[in-house]
Write a protein that binds this DNA or RNA. Structure first.
Lengths: 236, 236
DNA sequence: CGGTACGTTGAGTCATATCAACCATAGTGG
DNA sequence: CCACTATGGTTGATATGACTCAACGTACCG
């Protein structure tokens, strides 16, 4: 299937709209990126890059959703985070000059810009505000990773599933009918929570019996946010 | 008990010896830190800072070991990492301007330098190499956090315990008799692995029966590293 | 000598993983 | 148009890893 012709977004306009980190750049700097970047389109299921590979640049998401994951034992995925418009991925490997520690795959048809590594490095060198913002970003992610470690280590699967549902609501929002604006397979949900697919299925249908959610295939309708918060123990 | 009088270390000498991040500073910059820093001593059990508090600076470890942890449900600790000479802690909160997402407590009597937040921020602004090194540091930690998430989510307690023992060997080394150079309570071990104290005790004594380790109170002697590697599944 | 913190062991329970079977759906190719 | 296949979802039965609770031992300390 051929990709439709789509206009390539301008970096400073896109950054302004999506809140991407490039909003901290001057016009000339944004122009450099705009000139050097490569606009790419991907369909659900396509792989952007693979764990263990050396990476020559990083990606800024213009549209769509990408999952960032590690592959553990017997190939089981652990989803680390999702990237949505305005987010950048693979910057970790570029900045630390290590091979990719994660893979990235498209969840929802995406448009992304690929930006060569040198550009990022030189911006860090030349624009200290940008460097500071990148540090904030990395440090913030680090804080989230630490919380997630504690959750996985201490909470039950049931608690974590409720929490993840709420996090997804935060990140992707609900439509007019309170349906979660991201569509995941049960297996993907399991790979965030860190459990078996069957466990997610069983717990979801418990949540359904308890009138916390409604299920229509992959579409999940949030009926009782307070109830989910209570289960997830977010306030401890 | 009174603290002994100890000479305050010079930053560039200390950075050179410990490999602290300040080795990327010029002499004048190191002098600024040297002038502004506050040298402090702590004994095992003392708290450096507490989760949720706003922090006015960060710490560089000169001597000793600090545990960095989050407090989860019912006050159970999750140890996130250890800091040893040359490491800095609390820089995350300073850079992201968020409250501390972890607490820090002394594991082994320590000497640390407290450096005001403004100094770090201004160095990030003025020295782009330093900023880049900080980014590398944060990104590297992020990579480790991601691995840890995957491990906790996918490995058994047994595998994780073996892995943690090996990580401790990496980080703190063995003495002439192959004893691990860090002394932790069973509870602390459990709080790294993310399990119950009793489980650690049982598994350690299994490891002992299998001639993988020898136990003398808190001292752990590593008898068979290969065996532990095999159990930990590190090569998958 | 009592107190406190840590370590150890046993028994019982439960949450969760695993295994297996089955259904639904959609895309494919003859 | 109909098998054919692949993928994802669901459910039940069973197994078990790990937690919890409880009791007790040990060691150090004032």
């Amino acid at each position: 299937m051929k990709h439709q012709e789509v206009p390539v977004p301008f970096c400073d306009k896109c950054a302004f709209e999506t809140g991407a980190i490039f909003r901290h750049l001057g016009h000339e700097e944004a122009d450099i990126i705009n000139f050097e970047k490569e606009f790419r389109q991907f369909r659900r299921g396509e792989l952007l890059y693979n764990e263990g590979s050396r990476i020559s640049g990083f990606y800024c998401i213009h549209k769509g959703i990408i999952k960032v994951f590690k592959t553990g034992l017997d190939g089981k995925e652990q989803i680390i985070r999702f990237a949505k418009p305005g987010d950048i991925i693979a910057y970790r490997s570029v900045l630390s000059n290590e091979v990719a520690c994660t893979s990235a795959r498209v969840i929802e048809d995406s448009q992304v810009c690929f930006i060569p590594a040198e550009i990022l490095i030189s911006l860090v060198k030349s624009n200290s505000t940008f460097a500071h913002e990148l540090l904030k970003l990395a440090c913030h992610e680090l804080g989230e990773a630490n919380s997630f470690i504690t959750d996985i280590a201490q909470k039950t699967v049931r608690e974590r599933l409720a929490e993840i549902l709420l996090l997804l609501v935060e990140d992707f929002g609900l439509d007019e009918q309170d349906y979660l604006q991201i569509s995941l397979t049960r297996e993907e949900l399991a790979n965030i929570v860190g459990t078996a697919t069957e466990s997610v299925i069983r717990l979801l249908s418990e949540f359904k019996s308890d009138r916390l959610v409604e299920l229509n295939g992959r579409k999940i309708k949030i009926l009782n946010k307070k109830g989910l918060e209570k289960i997830s123990n977010v306030f401890n």
